[in-house]
C-alpha cells in the first residue's frame, strides 16, 4: 500500500474542503473496501480524510418513511427493529451481506459505493477499462462467470456487488448528498449508479465535492411485505451469484403494487420496472411470477461462463415472490 497522510475531519465542510485541496484524496469511513483496494494497488491516494466524526447518524422514522444516516453501520441497520418490521427486505439484504465483522465496520454510504469484484479490475496486472480507461476489457472473453448479464457494454461487464443497494433500489430509496457549500440534493438511487457505457470508470453521479449524508426510503405496503433471496456458491459470506429483492401489496389475491430488483446480474443495482408492470393487476400466482421473471431478464447479454445466470435470475425472482406470499 502506498503511504498517505491521514486527516480526521470534524465537519462535512472541512472534509469537503480538504478534498478540494487534494483532489486524489479519499474519504474513509469503515475502510473495508478502500483499504482492501489500496492494499491490492487498485487504488492509491495521497491522503485519507476520516469522516467518522461527521454527524451523519441515526435510523429514524420520518413523516413519509425511513431515514438512515450514511455513517450508520450495516450491522446496526440490519438489526434495527423499525427496519426489520417495516422494511424487511433491507434488513435481510444487510444480514446476508459480508460477515458480522465487516458489517460492524462498513457504513451505509460506503456500501453504496462498494466497487466491483471483477477479478480483472482487482488485479493491476491486467488491462481494465474501469481501473485504467482505454486499456481494454479481458473479461469479455475471459473469466466472466461472476460478471453481469444486464446493463453491460463493450467496455465493461463488471457486476455491481451490493445487496443493500438492490433492496434499496427496489423500494425507491433516495440518496441525500451534500456539497462543500452545505447545499443538499436528493437523487433517486435508481439514478445514482451509472451504466458503464464507454466510461466504466465513472460509477455514480456523486461529484468530487459531495458526500452522502443519508438514505431515505418511502413507507409503503410493498415495503412492509418485502423479502430478499440471495444465491451464493457457499451458504454464507459470499457475493451473490444472483439475488432478488421483492415487495408486493396484495389484496384479495390480486397484486396492487410490486417492486422487483436483481443483484449479481447487473452492472448497477438492477430494478426490473417492466417486470413489475406485468405483476400489477394480476393474480399472485406462480404463473404470473414466471411471466414477470422472464420480462426481468429480457435483453440479457450473457457471456461464455455466465449463461446460467439468465435462468438462475428468473428462478430466484420466482422463489422470492413465492416465499413472500407464503410468509
Amino acid at each position: 500500500m502506498n503511504n498517505f497522510s491521514y486527516t480526521p475531519a470534524a465537519t462535512a465542510k472541512e472534509a469537503l474542503g480538504l478534498r478540494k485541496d487534494t483532489k486524489e484524496a479519499a474519504f474513509i469511513a469503515g475502510g473495508t473496501t478502500l483499504l482492501d483496494l489500496m492494499k491490492a494497488n487498485v487504488e492509491a491516494h495521497p491522503q485519507l480524510i476520516d469522516i467518522n466524526q461527521l454527524p451523519f447518524k441515526g435510523i429514524q422514522e420520518t413523516a413519509d418513511g425511513l431515514r438512515i444516516g450514511a455513517l450508520e453501520r450495516m450491522s446496526d441497520v440490519g438489526e434495527n427493529a423499525l427496519v426489520m418490521q417495516q422494511y424487511p427486505v433491507i434488513a435481510e439484504a444487510l444480514l446476508l451481506s459480508a460477515s458480522p465483522q465487516l458489517r460492524n465496520m462498513a457504513s451505509i454510504g460506503g456500501n453504496l459505493l462498494q466497487r466491483t469484484r471483477c477479478g480483472y479490475f482487482r488485479d493491476p496486472a491486467f488491462p481494465c477499462n474501469k481501473r485504467n480507461p482505454g486499456s481494454g476489457c479481458p473479461a469479455q472473453v475471459g473469466d466472466n462467470r461472476n460478471l453481469a448479464i444486464l446493463g453491460t457494454s463493450e467496455a465493461c461487464i463488471a457486476t455491481n456487488p451490493g445487496d443493500l443497494a438492490v433492496a434499496l433500489v427496489a423500494l425507491d430509496a433516495v440518496v441525500v448528498l451534500e456539497n462543500a457549500k452545505g447545499k443538499q440534493r436528493r437523487v433517486p438511487l435508481l439514478d445514482f449508479h451509472l451504466l458503464p457505457g464507454t466510461t466504466p470508470q465513472r460509477e455514480t453521479i456523486l461529484e468530487p465535492d459531495e458526500l452522502i449524508v443519508a438514505v431515505t426510503v418511502p413507507a409503503a405496503a410493498h415495503a412492509r411485505k418485502s423479502h430478499y433471496v440471495k444465491v451464493r456458491d457457499r451458504a454464507s459470506y459470499a457475493f451473490a451469484l444472483v439475488s432478488a429483492a421483492v415487495g408486493l401489496e396484495v389484496q384479495g389475491g390480486q397484486i396492487r403494487s410490486a417492486r422487483l430488483a436483481l443483484g449479481g446480474v447487473g452492472t448497477k443495482p438492477w430494478r426490473a420496472l417492466e417486470a413489475e408492470k406485468m405483476l400489477v393487476g394480476r393474480a399472485a400466482t406462480e404463473e404470473t411470477f414466471r411471466t414477470a421473471a422472464a420480462a426481468a431478464v429480457r435483453g440479457a447479454q450473457p457471456r461464455e461462463h455466465n449463461r446460467f445466470k439468465v435462468e438462475m435470475a428468473q428462478k430466484t425472482l420466482v422463489q422470492a415472490l413465492q416465499e413472500l406470499m407464503a410468509s
Binding site: 465537519t11 462535512a12 467518522n52 454527524p55 451523519f56 447518524k57 444516516g69
Partner: peptide, 19 residues
C-alpha cells in the same frame, strides 16, 4: 463516534450538530 451516538440526530444535520 459511531458507538456512542444516539439515534436521534436532527435530519439533514450537516450543519447544526457539527456547528
Amino acid at each position: 463516534d459511531a458507538a456512542g451516538t444516539p439515534h436521534n440526530s436532527a435530519p439533514e444535520d450537516g450543519t447544526r450538530r457539527s456547528f
